[in-house]
Design a protein around this nucleic acid. Structure first.
Length: 149
DNA sequence: CTGCGAGTCAAAC
DNA sequence: GTTTGACTCGCAG
């Protein structure tokens, strides 16, 4: 079963779920037509709204689909997922964990299909913010929500 | 302080 | 094979 959640925030946060598993999250100009049925979807919608209001929320229980990604990318994203609310790591920190280069880490996190659930905005450059797929202003806004910056 | 070159390595072509 | 990054480091101006 396919479900869709759409939350207004800056633009819109659109979430697509299949059988209770989150396939992807995108930041769009327009909302998607919502279809929220399962308890999981309802719960995720509530959690998103709380999170975007600035409350501390833990998304680690939601299942995400990383099956299209390469093993390396999956590994990096799973590590990113462990970064706790309000904390950040640098690309270099993660590179050290895997014995790879900061640049390779950047390439990997850029492929994150489910921002927020996998908090790739918590990965920053050593001096500065680094980039963000959905635009740097989003990254800044998310970090601000969490009280970083 | 700022700028630039080189090193790095997974992915995409 | 070659090119390209959501990076870093080091070293000149």
């Amino acid at each position: 079963m396919l479900e869709v959640i759409s939350v207004r925030w800056l633009r819109f946060v659109n979430v697509v779920m299949k059988n209770g598993v989150v396939l992807r999250i995108t930041f769009d100009e327009k909302p998607l037509y919502e279809n929220v049925q399962s308890e999981t979807a309802k719960s995720l919608k509530r959690d998103l709204e709380r999170y975007l209001r600035g409350e501390r929320v833990d998304f680690s229980e939601y299942e995400v689909d990383l099956s299209d990604l390469t093993p390396f990318t999956r590994m990096v994203l799973e590590e990113v997922r462990k970064i706790p609310y309000g904390r950040t790591l640098t690309y270099g920190d993660l590179a050290k964990v895997f014995g790879t280069s900061p640049r390779a880490v950047g390439v990997a996190v850029k492929k994150n299909p489910v921002p927020i659930l996998i908090p790739c905005h918590r990965v920053v450059a050593k001096d500065g913010l680094g980039g963000y797929g959905g635009g740097i202003k989003l990254k800044k806004a998310l970090l601000k929500l969490e009280g970083v910056l």
